[in-house]
């Protein structure tokens, strides 16, 4: 098991955002976490990447509980997050943003190899490598945020609402990229409101409702499940 979450509880002040959730992601999987606004999806990702400290529970990554490890040290362990709303460094160029993604890596030559791989995957970023990131379109910023996360060569990529605010064509493009990143050997944990897209790409999925996991299973089974269809797929 690459990532195993056990009894994870998170509070914002007195409000409990995660009520002791358990789930796991195996190496090589795409796992989707779906649910409504405010269900705790983003909180879950933030806790895994170390932006938020849990009150209780374990985050086992490659067999080791990392819940007490400071967030900035988790990047080097192989965890990279593409945050909701992209959060690219708006005043930096595309290339500077990508370099920030490799902040923990010291080997220059290897770093340049990774950057050319990213540019192969995202030709548009290559075209715009000297452009200030704040002037990119939403879709381009999403690609930059994904490229930036991949610069650390993560073993697991945490994606938070990658389709948010994008045109349908761009959404398809982003999901194609997720698929190809996964085919190249990166494990993916995907948080999405677009449940249909998420279930189509994922191997397994968990449904989060107000801080608890209510349903889990193979993505293809959940796509057929009546209650899921009603609640999340708009049928």
């Amino acid at each position: 098991m690459l990532l195993e979450i056990k009894g994870l509880s998170v509070y914002y002040g007195v409000i409990q955002a995660l009520k002791g959730i358990d789930f796991s992601v195996d190496r090589g999987e795409i796992v989707a976490l779906i649910g409504a606004n405010g269900a705790g999806k983003t909180t879950t990702l933030h806790t895994i990447s170390g932006m938020i400290e849990p009150k209780a529970g374990e985050i086992n990554f490659e067999g080791k509980d990392i819940s007490k490890v400071p967030g900035h040290l988790r990047v080097n362990m192989g965890i990279a997050q593409v945050p909701e709303g992209r959060r690219v460094f708006a005043d930096m160029t595309v290339e500077e943003n990508l370099k920030m993604g490799a902040y923990t890596r010291r080997d220059k030559a290897e770093l340049n190899d990774t950057m050319s791989m990213i540019f192969d995957r995202f030709p548009r970023l290559k075209e715009r490598r000297n452009q200030i990131s704040g002037t990119l379109s939403g879709g381009e910023q999403q690609m930059l945020a994904m490229g930036r996360a991949l610069m650390s060569k993560p073993s697991i990529l945490l994606l938070d609402e990658p389709s948010m605010g994008l045109s349908p064509i761009m959404v398809n493009e982003v999901f194609d990229i997720i698929r190809s990143v996964h085919e190249d050997g990166t494990t993916v944990l995907l948080v999405e409101q677009n449940a249909k897209k998420a279930l189509n790409i994922a191997d397994r999925a968990y449904v989060l409702e107000t801080g608890s996991i209510t349903t889990s299973g193979n993505a293809s089974d959940l796509l057929e499940d009546d209650s899921i269809r009603k609640a999340y797929l708009g049928d």
Binding site: G50, P70, G71, H72, V75, P83, R87, M92, M100, Y103
Partner: peptide
Amino acid sequence: TREGQAMLAVSQDRGAAMLMGIDV
């Protein structure tokens, strides 16, 4: 410098800087 770049990143988005592995 690396430290200077970290400062720029933290000044623009502290959370995203942490996600890059920067010790804020």
